[in-house]
Design a protein around this nucleic acid. Sequence first.
RNA 1: GUCUCCAUCGUCUAGUGGUUAGGACACCGGGUUUUCAUCCCGGCAACGGGGGUUCAAUUCCCCCUGGAGAUGCCA
Length: 494
Amino acid sequence: MSVRVRYAPSPTGLQHIGGVRTALFNYFFARANGGSFILRIEDTDRERSTDESIQDLYDTLEWLGVDWDEGPVVGGDFGPYIQSERSDLYAKYAQKLIDDGKAYRCFCTPERLDQLRKEQDAAKSKEKGYDRHCRNLSDEDVAQKLAEGAPFVVRLKVPRDGKTSFDDVLMGTITRKNKDVNPDPVLLKSDGFPTYHLANVIDDHMMGITHIMRAQEWIPSGPLHILLYEAFGWTPPLYCHLPMVMGKDGQKLSKRHGSTAVKDFREKGYLPEALMNYVSMVGWSYDDKREFFTKDDFCELFTLEKINKAPGVFDYKKLEWYNGMYIREKSDEELASLLLPYLQAEGFISSEVRDEEKEMLSSIIPLVKERLKVLSDVIPMTRFLYEEVSVEDAQSFVPKKQTLEQSARALERAYAILREDAGKDDELIEEKLVEVSKELDLKVNGVFMPIRVAVTGSQVSPPLFDSIRALGWEKALQRIENSVNMLKNEVDHE
RNA sequence: GUCUCCAUCGUCUAGUGGUUAGGACACCGGGUUUUCAUCCCGGCAACGGGGGUUCAAUUCCCCCUGGAGAUGCCA
């Protein structure tokens, strides 16, 4: 039997790290086994589902280069793989369960359920959840309520006795006493839409899903789903509950830990290959050495056996490291086109790229390439090339163990040399500047730093001569002259 | 509270009934260097505790502890 797996998100927000990791593992597993990867949309929560979320789902998968074989709107034998468009089906199956005595209509109002819960909390009662009030309503009562047009939900009759278990590929056998399973969970909501439990079981069965790979937060509802399969007389698929992705504090990863939306990472300038690589390494490993995997590698090498059981903490630092590594692997041309949108958004480069802008861009690629952790780093890194710099604090010109006067003198001397030798060989100029540092009894950096600050506005920048060339000697000299004057003033006023 | 799951460096992990418990990130040193970064070299750092089983447990079993998740007309 060939493998059929699915990613079935509910479109109630942006795609996040955890969801994408689940998608990836399913996708890799399908590809590694010559199976099918199915995309299904579980939009049964009509309150929270949005079109934007669906668009984000598509955008995210496309960005990652994850393609699917069936669904949500094409390529299957089961109609649309969008649950909101399959409501009739679920209602039909809910009715079947009622007919078979496996489920029942419940007319309890939300108010009564609220009240019930409050009482249970207050009494610290051991009995939690629904009290099965409507489980044994007589046919007459039901008929009357229906005639009144009273809204209802359909609930599953969970057995009071016995236990239910299932085998998990990773965890082994998981067993739960039936009395510990949620008492009679809702299958069909009063708006006629199914809950996750019902729709998920029906669709997985109808679509011939062979392996359910989902996050471990679903483990507790495993037995419930088994009960549902049994109620329908179906054979459940294999389960494989994936370890969860946690934040630094060990809690389920969420916004308060930082960005979790893939969209955010994309916008900040993380590369899809880096995100895919890193995210997949949380909870899965190949061996004790290898850190780098392409999508194709994963699609070839992925196995369930190598999935870890314990939850893993998402390490933003390691993702950054991966990203830097992948950036450095890009060719200059590739990197230029990746960087261009960021420069344009910042207004550094016009939307209709002019020739000289293009030229300048390609000249700075080698300067920034090994300094970027994320693509958007290029903005602060190259700002001095596109905007005038202003250094408010004269102390910026002063390296450690050096005085303002010394910096002022050094810069003045350097200015004279640079103006004289502008455009000549780096080595020649460097030699002269080193000479100046000796004469003034300074470290070499004591001369270079003031120049760097004058030209780039910062103590940290790409290599000085490269920066000057990228900016143009004329502008650079102008900036240095300004700084020389500024420092003179400062010294005089001290 | 109840139920379920989990447990190797700070983090991601490899690993075995007998190993100097390996790698990566982070961190800390050092080297290269005009700053930063890259790159190279080095260092720090782990089998949660207690019982068993065994000639021998990090490894197998049990208990404890710790952590997480679930307890919805959300998924």
